[in-house]
């Protein structure tokens, strides 16, 4: 009888919080996509746009061409990855804030294209995208991506990313082809973002140009800062906390409005001031 009860509790819980849980999964995927580029020391604000490209690609494929969902997901990741690779070679010559500005501009180009093209449904967005995404798919993708990032760290690619992040000039002198590895990080990140965007589109039935603009790009960065970028589960932690925050605050009687934004900002500020390596540093045993 007890398993029945548990099952019942779980179903009820999911009925209430299902969409929140799904959003946590999608946002975690998006946060990891940025984490990949950050782990190679590159600050990209283009990952939201890559999610948009993935969403539109998959949506168009399933809506107009009746392509199977799983194929559409792969196509979305490949499309975002291909565009990232083409964009990467010129853009990754820029460092730090200049790279951020260039990728931000790319995001605007994508948004304006999405508004003006016929096939993307213009300003009203693309709808109705078939409802195909289920929670287990999101969390399978998240688990696989997390695992990939966790083991990548110990591979040749992971060591190269870490070296570039720490000191790009020294990395070059050690024989690391920095241009190639930076482009690789940018491309892997874009592919994960594209996948997340495609899943999100098939979860919400709709994708609009505004969804993946500047504020979304910055939100991904905040997930990473709050969670921490030293280990792969940092961005997941940040994404989960900040996505669930409105619900948690509702429990305390705070609804939408300035207080909620304030709490959001307060958490970010506290993390930057007191936990510069993010919330993960609370759990890590490493000193300093």
């Amino acid at each position: 009888m007890i398993p029945m009860d548990l099952n019942h509790i779980f179903t009820q819980f999911y009925a209430v919080y299902g969409s929140l849980i799904n959003f946590i999964g999608i946002n975690s995927l998006l946060a990891i996509s940025l984490y990949v580029t950050l782990s190679a020391g590159q600050l990209s604000l283009g990952n939201a746009a890559f999610a948009g490209i993935g969403g539109y690609t998959a949506g168009i494929l399933t809506m107009y061409l009746n392509v199977p969902y799983i194929v559409a997901l792969f196509a979305a990741a490949l499309m975002s990855g291909a565009i990232a690779m083409i964009l990467g070679f010129p853009v990754l010559r820029l460092r730090g804030v200049f790279l951020a500005i260039a990728t931000l501009a790319f995001g605007e180009v994508v948004r304006i294209l999405a508004i003006n093209l016929q096939i993307t449904g213009g300003a009203e967005g693309l709808t109705p995208i078939p409802d195909k995404t289920q929670a287990w798919m999101i969390f399978t993708a998240l688990a696989l991506t997390g695992y990939f990032m966790a083991v990548l760290r110990r591979s040749r690619i992971g060591w190269s990313f870490a070296s570039i992040r720490e000191d790009e000039t020294a990395a070059k002198a050690m024989g690391i082809n920095t241009t190639w590895y930076k482009t690789l990080a940018f491309t892997i990140g874009a592919m994960i973002a594209g996948l997340a965007g495609a899943m999100s589109a098939h979860l919400n039935y709709i994708i609009t140009p505004g969804e993946f603009g500047f504020s979304a790009a910055v939100q991904l960065l905040i997930f990473n800062i709050v969670g921490g970028t030293r280990v792969w589960y940092g961005p997941i932690l940040g994404a989960a906390l900040l996505t669930a925050l409105p619900e948690i605050l509702r429990g305390f009687g705070v609804t939408a409005g300035p207080v909620r934004m304030g709490v959001n900002g307060f958490i970010l500020l506290m993390v930057i001031l007191f936990l510069p390596n993010g919330l993960v540093s609370l759990f890590s045993h490493n000193k300093d």
């Binding site: 190269s160 870490a162 720490e166 020294a170 050690m174 024989g175």
Partner: peptide
């Protein structure tokens, strides 16, 4: 120009880029 956040051991391991194969 060291990798400041890495340990000494990790700095040297990172330096093995050309001599170590770590296939994916």
């Amino acid at each position: 120009r060291l990798f400041p956040a890495m340990t000494c051991l990790e700095n040297v391991i990172a330096g093995q880029h050309l001599t170590a194969s770590r296939p994916l």
